[in-house]
Design a protein around this nucleic acid. Structure first.
Lengths: 212, 212
DNA sequence: CGAGTTACGCTACGGCTCGTAGCGTAAGAG
DNA sequence: CTCTTACGCTACGAGCCGTAGCGTAACTCG
């Protein structure tokens, strides 16, 4: 959980004087942002519109977020916080299917569908935004991959790694394969990620991992 | 090759009367679009700026393309036309490495890097744009996958498919895995796709395909 | 060659969004 | 009660959008 999505941070109850920022405003703004994404999509979403929906002055938005990209990242990051977990389903194959379906469920929401690619595109020219996306969204996803591999190794399905650098590289590879495939299927091919697809994909990946 | 990137088509030399559209203008506009993408990125690229660079009136752009998205799709599609091929490297593993490096080389160009994700994001709310991207870019990529699989089957590295519907599903799966992984590695993880990564990825995929 | 048709360049425009400044007011801390 | 910071509101210059209108250029057909 991000305690304060603001740009200039403050300790929540630590010494700082003056009027505190309204937490209700934060919630209202992020809710309004998600609603606007659903109705308008990334392209037609404007700061003024979000402010109006949230019942807040436009200047208040700019006091907390540098622009549309940062605002939207925080708005969708909250969804990732709420909906990402990895229950132990007993086998590597089943765990992968689970995480795939979970990624897909998030990506198929109209809010995230229209927003994620857009902010990533922006981030190719904005290193700070890239870092924000990484810490707010990407790293949270990657944790599931690391957890899944640990479990598989504990079950004896996968060998433990000798070299820790190679282990890290391998985790990055697996992460790019899983997340990339789901994203590409959903947004580029525009085909649904259903249980059948998840099963075939997981089978392919497990076969690869066990026979490397 | 797209003979005419215009919206309203005309037969090139067929009966139509009136002044023909200037092919030099087309080239100049698409060149200017790519140059503007390199310098400004998707977000700050404007139609007026492209028109000025191309030495063309802004109205001329709008006579041919409905908007920024369509223009950029055609501009980057030309790059895919020029740089996509699949020389036979003798093995499935080597062919995959080749196609991965080729995708990556395209994605790492500043023009495509900033533009591809952006237009895909737009396309989630614009079916016509989605089709344009599909026919101008995605289908061209997918051909390489189909070709690579045929070769592998001819070499005896992969079994021939029994069910043609299953074969098509499988090709889609492989395509999403390859393209998705490369895109995710390049744009989200922002790590380079070098020969080492390509080798590891190809090894993983080949192991999966052979042991399904 | 002349008439018809389409493309082009140019100018101008209303409309929208951006991001900021300035002001008076509200809400906590000491 | 005073200090400090957040808030709402208004207003603004700037930039871009997409289109209309006009005169001119290029090509086809009779």
């Amino acid at each position: 959980m991000t305690p304060a999505p603001s740009v200039g941070r403050r300790a929540t109850s630590g010494g700082r004087t003056g009027r505190p920022r309204s937490p209700e405003a934060d919630r209202a703004i992020l809710d309004a942002t998600r609603a606007a994404l659903v109705e308008l999509g990334w392209g037609k979403l404007t700061m003024g519109d979000v402010a109006a929906r949230a019942g807040v002055a436009k200047t208040t938005l700019y006091r907390r977020w540098a622009g549309k990209s940062e605002l939207v990242v925080d708005a969708v990051a909250a969804l990732f916080d709420e909906h990402l977990e990895l229950p132990d389903r007993g086998s590597l194959q089943a765990d992968i299917e689970g995480v795939v379906l979970q990624f897909a469920a998030l990506l198929e929401r109209p809010e995230t569908k229209t927003a994620l690619m857009a902010v990533v595109a922006e981030s190719t020219r904005d290193e700070a935004l890239r870092q924000r996306i990484r810490s707010a969204i990407v790293d949270r996803q990657k944790r599931l991959v690391l957890l899944g591999r640990e479990r598989a190794q504990a079950r004896g399905e996968l060998p433990g790694e000798e070299d820790s650098a190679a282990a890290a590289r391998n985790a990055d590879l697996i992460f790019d394969v899983i997340a990339g495939a789901v994203v590409h299927r959903t947004l580029v091919s525009a085909e649904p990620v259903d249980t059948a697809w998840a099963r075939e994909f997981a089978a392919l990946l497990v076969a690869g991992l066990k026979n490397l």
